[in-house]
Every structure is written in structure tokens, then in C-alpha cells.
């Protein structure tokens, strides 16, 4: 079978898989950002128990493997009466995992906003919430965006693991085609190239655009 024949026979299935991978990546990325912001801010809270809670979450999710977390969420949580369908379990596991890494990025960025900005917020009599939302976070956003570019590629790569709980993503489609045709080089090679294209021509340009967009809004350019 030549390569064009292979693509015309199995291309549609790989494409379907790619669409699921994109959905998983977007949902997991949104969840990761939400978790990262929440736990990143909790990590610098003046309240000790809040800080401790954030530390426990971050250390657990950074200290174990994504695959272990995915299996745990999918196989163990139902034993406690919390049954989640595989599609949801997939992006939730990836989002929670990368959210823990993101939390450290958020914390670092917030802490690197110059001291004077915090003091100016106090001097203007802004409430702590308003100071964070209107003064600190927008500036922290500019600082943390480059690191998020790498994290988003990690999110994309992480979603390949959801195939292990039978979510029909690109990885899953590739494995199935491999199982029936044994054309391993063609199918896995094509899948690798698709992931590469998504990362290099999808995520990276989007994050660069976002960096420029935010910088312009902040009047930094």
C-alpha cells in the first residue's frame, strides 16, 4: 500500500481523532488555567490553612505521574460513587495535572510584580480583591505568558494519554489502525507529524499572538 492509498483509506479516522484531541486540549487548557490561577493565588494567601491546601494539591499532582492520576480518576473514583464518563475524566485529569504546574508559574509571576505596585494599590485604598484583579494580575499575566506557551504544549502532549482510557483521540485512532493494518511506520509517523503541526503551527503562534495582544493592551509595546 502506497502512502497516498494509506491516507485515503485511514485519513478520515485520523482526522476524527485529531478533532477529539483538539477538543481535549482546549478543555484541559481552560481547566488548567482556572486551577493554576486559583491555587497560584492560594499559595500566597496570608492564611496558613489556605496556603497548606494549595501546597498539598500542587505537590500531589506534581509528585505523581499523569497516567497514574488518569487511572485513579477513571478507575478509583467510581468506587466512591463518583462516576465520570471517559471523555470528561480525560480532560479533567490532564487539566488538573498541568494546573498544578501552572500554579507555580502563576505564583512566581504574581510575586515578581514590583513591590511598588502593591503599595500603590494600598495607597489608593483598593480592596485586596480589587488590587489583585485590576493591578497585580494583569501585570503578572504579561510575565507568565511565555511560560504558559510551554505548558500548553505539555497539555497537548498530555491529552495523548487519554487514549489509555479509550477516549477516541488521535493516539487512540492511530493504535486502532495499527492493530488492524500493521502499517506502524505510516500510522504512527503520520500521528507524530499531526501532533507536531498542532504544536508548532497551532499552539505556538497562538500563544505568541496572545503575548503581543496582552502586551499591547497593557501599553507595553
Amino acid at each position: 500500500m502506497t502512502y497516498p492509498e494509506f491516507i485515503s483509506a485511514h485519513g478520515p479516522r485520523l482526522l476524527d481523532g485529531t478533532l477529539v484531541t483538539i477538543q481535549q486540549t482546549i478543555l484541559a487548557a481552560l481547566l488548567a488555567v482556572l486551577i493554576a490561577l486559583t491555587f497560584g493565588m492560594m499559595k500566597i494567601s496570608p492564611l496558613r490553612p489556605v496556603r497548606a491546601l494549595a501546597t498539598v494539591y500542587i505537590e500531589i499532582f506534581r509528585g505523581t505521574s499523569l497516567l497514574v492520576q488518569l487511572y485513579w480518576i477513571f478507575f478509583v473514583l467510581p468506587l466512591f460513587g463518583l462516576t465520570i464518563d471517559k471523555f470528561t475524566a480525560g480532560f479533567v485529569a490532564v487539566g488538573m495535572n498541568l494546573g498544578a504546574y501552572g500554579a507555580e508559574v502563576v505564583r512566581g509571576a504574581i510575586q515578581s510584580v514590583p513591590r511598588g505596585q502593591w503599595e500603590a494599590g494600598v495607597a489608593l485604598n483598593l480592596s485586596p480583591a480589587r488590587r489583585m484583579w485590576r493591578i497585580i494580575l494583569p501585570q503578572a499575566l504579561v510575565i507568565m505568558l511565555p511560560a504558559w506557551g510551554n505548558l500548553m504544549i505539555e497539555v497537548l502532549k498530555g491529552t495523548a494519554l487519554v487514549a489509555m482510557i479509550s477516549v477516541a483521540d488521535l493516539m487512540f485512532a492511530a493504535r486502532q489502525i495499527n492493530g488492524t493494518t500493521y502499517l506502524s511506520a505510516q500510522v504512527f509517523g503520520t500521528a507524530l507529524v499531526i501532533y507536531y503541526v498542532l504544536a508548532r503551527f497551532g499552539i505556538t503562534p497562538f500563544m505568541r499572538w496572545l503575548e503581543r495582544f496582552v502586551a499591547r493592551r497593557m501599553g507595553r509595546v
Binding site: K157, A160, L161, M164, S184, A191, Y195, Y196
Partner: peptide, 9 residues
């Protein structure tokens, strides 16, 4: 920029 699990396969 590609998943390790796919590289293993």
C-alpha cells in the same frame, strides 16, 4: 512537541 507515549509506540 510530540507525546512521549506515541514515540514509545
Amino acid at each position: 512537541s510530540t507525546p512521549l507515549i506515541l514515540q514509545i509506540f
